[in-house]
Amino acid sequence: MAYIEVNDLVKDYKIYDKPKGFFNVAKSIFVRTYHTKRAVDHITFSIEQGEVVGYIGPNGAGKSTTIKMLSGILMPTEGQISVNGREPWKDRKQNSLHMGVVFGQRSQLFWDLPVEDTFDLFRKIYKVEEHKFKQNVEFYVELLDMKEFLHQPVRQLSLGQKMRANIAVALLHDPDIVYLDEPTIGLDVVAKNKIRNFIRTVNEEKHTTVILTTHDMDDIEIICKRLIMIDHGKKLYDGTLSDFKRSYKGESVVSIEFESDEEYVMPEGTYPFSILKRDGAKYLFRYDRDKTTPAEVAYLVSKNRPIVDMGMQETDIEYIVRSMYEGKAE
């Protein structure tokens, strides 16, 4: 049996209708009407120990809800979850002893305590052995470059420092699995990279299972081998990252800036690209990903006119994901 087995998982939220007008508000004290919103809609997947899975989807797709159910703080409406043979919701305390969680938007740290003391507190909460604790703290402080702010109270830390400390705290007790809910949200490139490398290293050295939700496709590209994509509570894709890229064929966009802002006219003949938009000397070209590459587009265009700049609108995976999100929403 896989480490995590999720079977036909459903979560409904009750949303109470907010009445308008005094009379209706008074009435709502006694009779409240509500509608149900299905946040997670019959999702099934299984994850093996040691896997790193990117769990993606647009805002409100049901990612966090799934994570909350896996971590045992929400009860599923229907379906089964088993994490290492345990039902997280029923066995909340046991389950939480073996997992680590980072909610990117919510800090686990104590506002007035120095990071060091928070570590100590978590050592006691998770009953981590002294020896193992010391080893882990050393390892994480080194990897995440936390030495300089270890003695500072959390309230004085930057967002990136806090996030690093949060991730270290979640891994202090060597959990089998760690849920990272948007761990790179709001961070700069350097901080993001530190965290990505750290997650990879921990996964390789400790064989920790990682489930990661994010909106940053670089996170996925660098850290994850497997991808699960959901939208409107339904699973859209589940498989390896490379299959995901390969399976999707379509168009992409490249931007090219010419030296002068005269109008660019497409030369005679058929080309695997076309003009999408013009903004002064800057043009957006649409091209077919199967037939050509952005480099070739730039080459063909630059034969007629000198260009000063070109750029990819987004990485491949970002483009795929965006067109899938948008396609689904229509």
């Binding site: 909350k68 971590s71 045992g72 703080i73 909340r92 305390k93 046991q94 939480s96 002893l97 997992m99 969680v101 909610f103 919510r106 686990q108 909460i125 998770y126």
Partner: peptide, 13 residues
């Protein structure tokens, strides 16, 4: 504010 989730993910009563 939802911080209750932070407490419930810990192995504590």
């Amino acid at each position: 504010d939802g911080t209750v989730g932070n407490e419930l993910v810990k192995p504590l009563s």
